[in-house]
Nucleic acid binder design. Structure first.
Lengths: 150, 150
DNA sequence: AGCTAGAGTTCCTTTAGGGAACTCAAATCG
DNA sequence: CGATTTGAGTTCCCTAAAGGAACTCTAGCT
């Protein structure tokens, strides 16, 4: 919805929300990641209105997060994550981790993640790209960066 | 807006969106994290409608992400992140990292993060909690978990 | 007694989401 | 060869949520 455009703010969180902040967008990305790549599949799995699905897919394609790939002579296509989009799914994995921890309740997490490198069921952990130690919201100071103006 | 309630889905991403998926919510969290803790400060900094700000703050308090702390005899309070809320800010840091990388453009990132542990300007990196190797969206298989049923 | 400030409410307008029906083009069926 | 099916959208109407400005309420100050 978002009548106010967040994209103009000098804030990478706001700008990211301009791409995936609208209702349904993160779930569309999740579904494409999980292998639901066609319009009908997405619509059926999410139960989203066709109108809104069309709008969101166009928005995500426009922002280079998804790409449309034809799979037939007819105007038929599948949606796939671009490199930019795959990195955005990292955000979803962290969201999933938080939801698993704080909202899953008795039943436990609905989805498990098996890490290719070690083969184990695991979860993501935030580390400092510089020193490798844990890096969470309480472990940092915020400083104005070069793009801080307006 | 989100007429459809995501919280009932068997998906931790959807459930997390039920908490912070509405417009403005992530930015409110960001502001509280950055030290804007009072109603008037938040309203002025974000330019959000007072009505919507009230709704969002109540929602975030109800979900245990923020807590209301009185700072005066009068009904005056400040909003603070709970433990649950601080962990949610991890999601924002990953969003910021993506925005810095893909949307910041020429000017560079608007905000820099200094990691307390090493004192360096850095960014978060996703690692496997089990083996410590990088763990990104392309590095995992999704499997149904114990809470997978509807 | 009147003014100010923080923190919300109320009310009205505008816009975006939900949902069902409709369109359109190519392939396939009888 | 005409009729049906299928994927992928459009169109339209209705309702709910965002924007915005004005109003309220309470306690302390002058």
């Amino acid at each position: 919805m978002q009548r106010t455009k967040f994209g103009d703010m000098a804030c990478s969180i706001a700008r990211t929300l301009d791409v995936i902040g609208e209702p349904w967008s993160p779930l569309i990305l999740r579904d494409v990641w999980a292998g639901f790549t066609r319009f009908e599949q997405l619509q059926a799995d999410l139960g989203i209105s066709r109108k809104v699905l069309t709008e969101r897919l166009n928005h995500l394609v426009d922002h280079g997060v998804l790409e449309r790939r034809p799979y037939d002579q007819r105007p038929r296509h599948e949606y796939h994550l671009t490199a930019k989009g795959i990195e955005l799914v990292d955000v979803l994995m962290v969201m999933a981790g938080w939801g698993d921890r704080w909202l899953a309740g008795e039943a436990g997490p609905p989805v498990l993640y098996r890490h290719h490198a070690c083969g184990e069921i695991s979860r993501v952990d935030l580390r400092c790209a510089h020193c490798g130690e844990p890096m969470h919201a309480g472990d940092v100071d915020l400083l104005p960066g070069p793009g801080a103006d307006r």
